[in-house]
């Protein structure tokens, strides 16, 4: 698979590989992400209007009729596109690409035009329609690494930027480069089936580099030319029995 901007020599270019053959739809990543990133629960009324805020969600598709039914799971999160459609339309640079291949969202800069959300084909950007409601008790759990977003701004999967930074800090303290597997976003760390792999695609020894060049690798909506940093490994097989 050709990697966009591969010639751009940065030490790090983060990428994620999701093996659809492994995903069992259990939702551990959803809760892992939510507890790690202070993502609010929006409540029944907002869920009814389609405002759930799972930075990563398990999309479920059904194919076929009874009895030949097939149900598929597709974990979906910000694809950290190299040519991200959301970035160019933001009038205030609240979302842009950093030199490590991350599509970053700067909460303090965002004014909430929601244009980025309109230009995201994956529908993975989330807007804070209200101030987040964490009750007194729940606030004890909030992760101090990550800010709690106020009303009126967009948010989305950050590839657990706080973990990336901590991983790099640790490596720097120990005077070494970041090793493959040092940094894991919450979803990848928790995924019980090991469907999610995260790593530095510029490191040619890394696991993601190897997986991305496998036969099953593809990206969502590749024809749109967004060059996502999230790669999927095609699931299923012919003649299963």
């Amino acid at each position: 698979m050709k990697i966009f901007n591969a010639d751009k020599q940065n030490d790090y270019k983060w990428a994620m590989v999701i093996d659809l053959d492994r995903c069992d739809g259990c939702g551990a990543c959803v809760i892992g992400c939510q507890t790690e990133n202070n993502v609010p629960t929006v409540g029944q009324d907002d869920v009814a209007t389609g405002r759930s805020m799972h930075w990563i969600r398990i999309e479920r598709y059904i194919e076929g009729e009874y009895p030949n039914v097939k149900v598929r799971f597709l974990p979906m999160m910000c694809q950290h596109c190299e040519a991200a459609p959301c970035e160019s339309v933001c009038p205030v640079y609240a979302t842009y690409h950093n030199d490590e291949g991350l599509n970053v969202q700067v909460y303090n800069r965002c004014i909430g035009t929601r244009f980025c959300g309109n230009n995201c084909p994956y529908s993975v950007r989330f807007f804070n329609w209200w101030d987040p409601s964490f009750d007194e008790a729940t606030r004890n759990q909030l992760n101090p690494d990550v800010s709690v977003r106020e009303r009126g701004i967009m948010e989305k999967c950050s590839f657990c930027m706080q973990r990336i930074r901590r991983g790099k800090d640790h490596a720097k303290d120990e005077g070494r480069p970041v090793k493959d597997g040092d940094i894991q976003p919450a979803c990848a760390q928790t995924c019980p089936t090991g469907a999610i792999t995260f790593g530095n695609i510029n490191d040619h020894e890394s696991k993601v580099h190897e997986m991305v060049h496998g036969k099953r690798a593809y990206r969502l909506f590749e024809e749109k030319g967004t060059h996502p940093s999230v790669y999927y490994l095609k699931g299923g097989a012919e003649n299963v029995f």
Binding site: G112, R114, N118, C120, S123, F126, F127
Partner: peptide, 15 residues
């Protein structure tokens, strides 16, 4: 004061 939630907007109908 309360938030954009008072509108009928939601993902992905941001506008």
């Amino acid at each position: 004061v309360v938030g954009m939630g008072v509108t009928g907007l939601h993902q992905p109908v941001f506008w």
